[in-house]
Design a protein around this nucleic acid. Structure first.
Ligand SMILES: Nc1ccn([C@H]2C[C@H](O)[C@@H](COP(=O)(O)OP(=O)(O)OP(=O)(O)O)O2)c(=O)n1
Ligand SMILES: [Mg+2]
Ligand SMILES: [Mg+2]
Length: 699
DNA sequence: ACGGATGCGACG
DNA sequence: TCGTCGCAT
């Protein structure tokens, strides 16, 4: 499964940092009186006290475990404090934890490349920082070693046996005879200790860390001594560590693969893997996995730490177990609306804070079918272009659901829902947004070039044509092959339920309105917005809801400044196949931004991946106040213009879609702007220009 | 079918 | 690509 990479002598300094009982700490920061007490975070208190998803170390002493029920926990630890996960829109709301995780990450990213590995952990590549320290201020010459560093656990050292451990650690850090790799790890110890102290000081959270020469070992080490400790894996201790390590403890081997190794191959420890040749492992588990296993057995893991602080997707979902399964279309629609509302908020936050736009909306569902106790059938996932705006997301998600449902039902006969309404039940629903790319807004001159402009409030009602058109307006690298599931199709009739749905055939506008009305009636749980006019879908400004990292806020201010500019910039991009700019690769622009954006307070790393072939067509009303709202409208406006000026046919094949999405009209770019760009960018742009003067691909 | 809500990567 | 699956926190 995991991809393998080579590297004979890997001397990188990699750290893995994992927050201690993270959700608990987040709640304890909110309620400091809970600190030091046995505490757990539960979600959905109603049933058996809710399920535990995080447990404090005090509570763990009593045997309290994750996935216990609240009531169980009370049994083994009567004094335990159970804190509920916040609920919004009838579902768990994890945003507080996400934001807390972002706080931590912005600190941990200070000393080297940082990869968000989960909501509470990151990998760091500290190689450069360690090398620099070794050259400029080697630990050997330091008189005072930080106390936190002295508390490190160094695998393979004679510690844990009584004598003065800190002295031993101090000696290990200081010693001059160490080989280069150990010296680098010694630097890693100091850097990580410092980072962890900064995290504690600035967030009040403790964390634990592993420091090693690769991600696998660092991850392994971070979990060995918790909480609030750090563990180092010198090269010399690797084999000893792995030889006795149960195979399931290795990341990626905790499931079927690990079980297969154990049962089919008799591999109980990672060391047991050494007996098998790479070919043997490949033969059984495939080329990639085979090589990966062979390497893992030897402590080799060349996977790079990706520089990515932000998630690649956003999802919102809920399960409806057993008797609670959704059995009517309107119930599904209700919950889809909730999920989409949350998703839309988070997309809006992402846009504001990180200037990123998501391009694909996906709906996942699970269903059971009690027709002939043949339950457990796969409900197909469906995706479509993502249009911003809560109501649009809701509408599109609902259409995706209907498309999935038609398929799902069709698989065993469309007829059956006629007389006795469907026998299906939806046991889980989720919507997610993916293909998230930064809005290109590179150098200062480019930023100036993009005048964020105001847009008036248009109706959000869209024609079916536009619904297709705006799909690819702002597009991620190479996508745009979308099926028609996003198109409004005749609604399925479910007699006896959802009566109003049956007469929504004519237009989206009607349906939209009805949805809103329905929402208004039955959705009192949604606090912020009460005004629903048929058009403006979501008037609650997301800006107010965020407890967002202050880091990005600065950039928002910057954008607000630009947004005051009334003038308008517009360009269309046209690009030919083959000259498409890649996210990674040899783009000079990419290199340029990489070299000039080493530090920064924003979690957004847009500059590292600028020039996605998209263009900023964003406009913005009064400041940024309604930015999210306007974005959706803007898409439509631009599309409409596009239609008018270039007379596109909206019946095009996928290839045309692709070109469309990447295309722009170079003639509308002011040449003088190019002169302001750095030379290496100018070169590249000049290279684009010539081949670009070509006839259009459009009719 | 009460182990929920998310998120990532690889496969075909 | 999309959709499915595995694995993870
Ligand atoms: N099955 C899981 C595992 C984790 N989490 C959430 C709650 C945790 O607090 C957070 C981090 O997961 P960890 O595995 O890192 O566990 P903790 O941080 O809670 O404890 P530890 O100190 O062992 O890392 O993710 C979750 O919701 N569901
Ligand atoms: Mg943790
Ligand atoms: Mg974790």
């Amino acid at each position: 499964m995991p991809v393998a990479k080579p590297e004979s002598c890997d001397s990188r300094v990699i750290a893995h940092i994992d927050m201690d009982c993270f959700y608990v700490q987040v709640e304890q920061r909110k309620q400091p009186q809970l600190r030091g007490l046995p505490t757990a975070v539960v979600q959905y208190n109603e049933w058996k006290g809710g399920a535990l998803i995080a447990v404090s170390y005090e509570a763990r002493k009593f045997g309290v475990k994750r996935s216990m029920r609240g009531e169980e926990a009370k049994e083994v630890c009567p004094q335990i404090h159970l804190v509920q996960v916040p609920v919004a829109r009838g579902k768990a709301d994890l945003n507080g934890y996400r934001n807390a995780g972002s706080e931590v990450m912005s600190i941990l990213a200070r000393r080297g490349r940082c990869e968000r590995a989960s909501i509470d952990e990151v990998y760091l590549d500290l190689t450069d920082a360690a090398e620099t320290m070794l050259a400029e201020a080697p630990p050997q010459h330091l008189e005072a070693i930080d106390e936190e560093a002295l508390k490190s656990h160094i695998l393979g050292l004679n510690n844990e046996d009584g004598s003065d451990v800190k002295e031993i650690v101090r000696n290990w850090i200081h010693r001059c005879h160490a080989d280069h790799r150990d010296k680098l790890l010694a630097c890693g110890i100091l850097i990580v200790a410092e980072l962890r102290m900064q995290v504690l000081k600035e967030t009040e959270f403790t964390c634990s860390a592993g420091i090693a020469h690769n991600k696998m070992l660092a991850k392994l080490a971070s979990g060995m001594n918790k909480p609030a400790q750090q563990t180092v894996v010198p090269f010399s201790s690797v084999q000893g560590l792995l030889n006795s390590l149960p195979i399931r403890k290795m990341k990626q081997l905790g499931g079927k693969l690990g079980m297969s190794l154990q049962i089919d191959m008799g591999v109980n420890t990672v060391g047991d893997l050494l007996q098998f040749s790479e070919e043997k492992l490949q033969e059984r588990y495939g080329l990639n996995t085979g090589t990966w296993l062979w390497n893992i057995a030897r402590g080799i893991n060349g996977e790079a730490v990706e520089g990515r602080l932000l998630p690649k997707s956003h999802g919102s979902g809920k399960t409806f177990p057993g008797p609670r399964a959704l059995k009517t279309v309107s119930a599904v629609q209700h919950w889809l609306n909730q999920l989409c509302e949350e998703l839309s908020e988070r997309l809006c936050s992402d846009l504001e804070q990180n200037k990123r736009i998501a391009h694909t909306l996906t709906l996942h569902a699970r269903a059971y079918k009690s027709s002939d106790s043949d339950s457990e059938k796969k409900f197909p996932s469906k995706s479509c272009p993502l249009r911003y705006g809560t109501a649009k997301i809701q509408e599109d998600a609902f259409n995706l659901f209907q498309a999935g449902l038609r398929e799902y039902i069709g698989l065993y006969g469309v007829k059956s829902q006629g007389s006795h309404y469907s026998r299906w039940g939806i046991t889980s629903l989720s919507v997610s947004a993916s293909k998230i790319v930064p809005i290109p807004s590179g150098t200062c001159s480019i930023v100036k070039y993009f005048h964020w402009q105001s847009s008036s409030h248009f109706s959000s009602i869209q024609s079916a044509e536009n619904l297709r058109m705006d799909a690819t307006h702002l597009s991620p690298p190479g996508n745009e092959s979308y099926s028609e599931v996003g198109l409004p199709e005749p609604k399925i009739h479910f007699p006896g339920e959802d009566s109003w749905i049956e007469d929504t055939t004519p237009g989206l506008g009607l349906q939209e309105q009805k949805i809103n009305v329905w929402k208004d009636e039955d959705l009192s749980c949604s606090p912020s917005k009460k005004k629903v006019d048929g058009f403006t879908e979501d008037t609650s400004p997301l800006l107010l809801s965020g407890t967002q990292g202050c880091l990005e806020q600065n950039q928002n201010k910057q954008q607000r400044e630009f947004s005051k500019d009334e003038s308008r910039f517009k360009s269309e991009y046209r690009e030919q196949k083959g000259t498409r700019l890649k996210n990674k690769g040899t783009s000079s622009i990419l290199k340029f931004f990489k070299s000039c954006n080493p530090s920064g307070t924003s979690l957004s790393q847009e500059h590292d991946r600028t020039v996605q072939g998209t263009d900023a067509q964003l406009t913005n009303g009064a400041g940024f106040q309604s930015s999210c709202h306007n974005l959706a409208e803007l898409n439509e406006v631009e599309v409409a213009k596009e239609n008018g000026t270039s007379s596109h046919s909206y019946i095009r094949d996928q290839d045309e879609w692709r070109r469309e999405a990447w295309s722009y009209n170079i003639n509308e770019i002011d040449p003088s702007v190019i002169d302001e760009l750095p030379m290496e960018i100018q070169d590249e742009i000049q290279a684009w220009l010539r081949p670009r003067k070509r006839p259009n691909n459009i009719v």
